[in-house]
Design a protein around this nucleic acid. Structure first.
Lengths: 132, 132
DNA sequence: TCATTCGTAGACTTATCGTATCTATAATAT
DNA sequence: ATATTATAGATACGATAAGTCTACGAATGA
């Protein structure tokens, strides 16, 4: 059980946008080059981030992606859920009379993790990134 | 990203053992019947639980599985890790100079979930199970 | 207006992993 | 001995992740 590599890409791409390019749009080409992944695959992640309302896309020459919201509002949870979806970690496949006790426990634990990921913003990491 | 159904089976099987059969061994056949899943598949989960030291197996006639440890010691985390393994939820695939900041954040959040799952014991649910 | 740049969408492979079954084997009670 | 029960391994199938390719649409700038 693991987060997909796509989430890894998305988080690193977002961190780059927040840290290096708060204003002007960055092309997939540049972003992919910086991260060392293929453009075509990375663009899928970025499109998901657009649909989730985290970033904004600009078509045409000198286009690319830039942040949409205030960068201080973008949490780890936002990015992760944009890629992974919002279905819960655990779903009981049995039919109980009432709600599954086991599911409640795991869901509660998951909530705690989500709470932490929601409070942690991408921008929180920026001060710790060594400047080139 | 989800816990596998195998984990679902294992948790329910453990709950059954803790709640209904603290002493005498229960066969896969009975367990599978109670849960409504196939014997052959369920036995794989149980074998993993044996290897993890959570339950004990008895071969031969009137054999089966029974709890090994004190039932109050068996946590949700024990069962989940027995099935899913212990690799962390997120692993950065990039090469950074120092440790990946993103990974640290996610790992920290995961730790919180694990902490909750470790403190919650299977036996905690027993009082809430309606007796037949 | 026209070519170039750039994001979007969908079809399409390929690989990996979860799910599940079957069979043979080893251990134990009666 | 024989029936019963767990264990291990091989195998098959399907779903999902990972990745590529191509055609399309939107915007810029000459």
């Amino acid at each position: 059980m693991k987060y997909s590599q796509a989430t890894d890409y998305a988080l690193h791409a977002m961190l780059y946008l927040v840290a290096e390019a708060p204003d002007k749009p960055v092309s997939v080409q540049l972003l992919a080059e910086k991260l060392g992944v293929s453009q075509t695959y990375l663009s899928k992640m970025l499109t998901k981030l657009v649909k989730a309302g985290l970033i904004h896309s600009v078509s045409g020459a000198n286009g690319g992606y830039k942040l949409k919201r205030n960068q201080d509002d973008i949490s780890f949870l936002d990015v992760i859920q944009a890629i992974e979806g919002t279905t819960s970690l655990f779903e009981c496949s049995f039919h109980h009379d009432s709600a599954c006790l086991i599911q409640q426990v795991v869901a509660d634990a998951e909530q705690q993790m989500m709470h932490t990921l929601k409070n942690k913003k991408i921008a929180d990491l920026v001060p710790h990134i060594p400047k080139p």
